[in-house]
């Protein structure tokens, strides 16, 4: 049984159908990439997984580790091991990054029946993760994402992922807005977490990131459907030929 099983998923925003029958199975240990033109529904898919209000599934189902994802609140999904790195991470004025991280980590641990991490242990963990990702300690002292550059925000998403150690991480265009050095750091962060127990769904518009995070499977999403699935060479093909043909195909 796959860790993530998506069957004939339909979903919409304000009654407008965006996802029109997505089928997808991601096994533990695998890295899948989802590529597709802008507006094809990649972020919608990610939000439906995470449980954002207004992104309503209308048909089909999503099972995560065998459980019906739609029966769970967003925080329960996170505690069960689902992580979404946001395409546009939000700024939370007045909430210190450290408070945010500790609250999140301990809330998840509590839900899983694990004891809360002591403050010194927590600080040690965060420092270590931050060092690995080249995240400045100074950044941790500020309010969540407030005054961060685009690249810093993306790196902060990866830091959260590394700290929370999810079973499935969905990375929504984590590469956009990153220069090549930052991209490598982010990719290193992901690769360090790769394990037989963990899976990744890497959403990207460009092939570039996939040079560093090598996927097992590549899907093309177009107009709310997965229209093609292949190996890592599919990403190179897309890079060379663009998305034009997939846009056409989906319309037809």
């Amino acid at each position: 049984m796959a860790l993530l099983e998506v069957t004939n998923l339909h979903a919409g925003i304000d009654g407008k159908e965006i996802l029109r029958g997505v089928d997808l199975a991601v096994k533990a240990g695998e890295v899948h990439a989802i590529m597709g033109p802008n507006g094809s529904g990649k972020s919608t898919l990610a939000y439906v997984f995470a449980g954002k209000n207004g992104y309503e599934p209308t048909a089909g189902e999503v099972r995560f580790d065998g459980k019906d994802l739609f029966e769970m609140e967003p925080d329960e999904r996170a505690a069960a091991g689902l992580f979404l790195a946001f395409q546009y991470p939000l700024e939370i004025p007045g909430v210190a990054t450290m408070t945010f991280l500790r609250t999140a980590l301990n809330a998840q641990r509590k839900k899983r029946g694990a004891p809360e991490l002591s403050t010194p242990d927590f600080i040690k963990r965060v420092r270590e993760v931050a060092r690995n990702l080249g995240v400045d300690q100074e950044m941790l002292r500020r309010a969540v994402n407030v005054g961060f550059s685009g690249g810093e925000k993306k790196r902060n998403e990866v830091l959260q992922m590394a700290l929370l150690e999810p079973r499935l991480a969905v990375l929504d265009e984590t590469d956009s807005g990153l220069d090549i050095d930052a991209l490598k750091i982010v990719a290193d962060g992901v690769n360090r977490l790769r394990s037989p127990q963990r899976a990744f769904l890497v959403i990207t518009h460009y092939q570039r990131l996939l040079n560093y995070i090598v996927p097992d499977v590549v899907h093309v999403l177009s107009r709310g459907r997965i229209v093609k699935t292949g190996g890592k060479e599919l990403a190179l093909e897309l890079e060379a030929r663009g998305y034009a043909e997939y846009q056409e195909e989906a319309v037809a």
Partner: peptide, 11 residues
């Protein structure tokens, strides 16, 4: 913002 926090596991 509430969703962002919840997506990190915060009830």
């Amino acid at each position: 913002l509430k969703f962002y926090l919840m997506a990190r596991g915060i009830p």
